[in-house]
Amino acid sequence: MKILVPISNVPDTTTKIAFANGDTEFNAAGVQFIINPYDEWYALVRALELKEAGKAEKVTVIHVGLTESDATIRKAFALGADDGVRIDAEGPDAYFVAEQIAKYAQENGYELIMAGKETISYNGSSVGAMIAGFMDLPLISLATKFELEGSKALVEHDVDGGTQVVECELPLVISCSKGMAEQRIPNMKGIMSARTKPLTVIPASGSDKLTNIKSYTLSAGRTTCKMFDEDHIDEMVNLLHTEAKVI
């Protein structure tokens, strides 16, 4: 059984976001890129744990992006992924990305696809569910615990008002949330081997562009914070009513 982990290349969580070309493009100058945390900490690390426990033969990471993303893919190798695939296209939207990944997964016999629940860049929570749609597979979303018993997955996942424990025969797509695994730091052996692990670059197929971004706007910061001391809390509570109108 082989596991496919889609990874996204995103600006580090502390990045100060800026735009270029009349606010029509993300300005990547000087930005540190990382593997999307949900893809890495939860999906990839749990996939690696399953392989280490002898429950999977191989963990492949897959990414839709240009050559700038190769360093991020190699970070996944350093963490322990066996090999990687980069589909050589900019990836205009989630539909395009998911379609490419689903096609690869289908053609190469991956039975378990473990995606992060969302990216911290475009926050669409869409790719995992779209892959399930393209492959006509069940989806278990927001998984927080995942076990494999043979070809049966046992999953705990978030639902409205609580959690639910479910089981499902593979093949299956899951989207991973906090709780799946703990963050890992690559060890020296991993870092050394990352350079030589196979990274296959394949061209994209199809060119559907169902959505595109026209412009970006930075979110307005809040104006000044009104400060109160412990003797004027009543005043603040009144302002929450009269000024902010939230109570």
Binding site: T15, I17, T211, I213, K214, T217
Partner: peptide
């Protein structure tokens, strides 16, 4: 919202 609320984008 994009970039975890740090910005917004207009999608077509």
């Amino acid at each position: 919202n994009v970039f975890s609320g740090k910005a917004t984008a207009i999608y077509s």
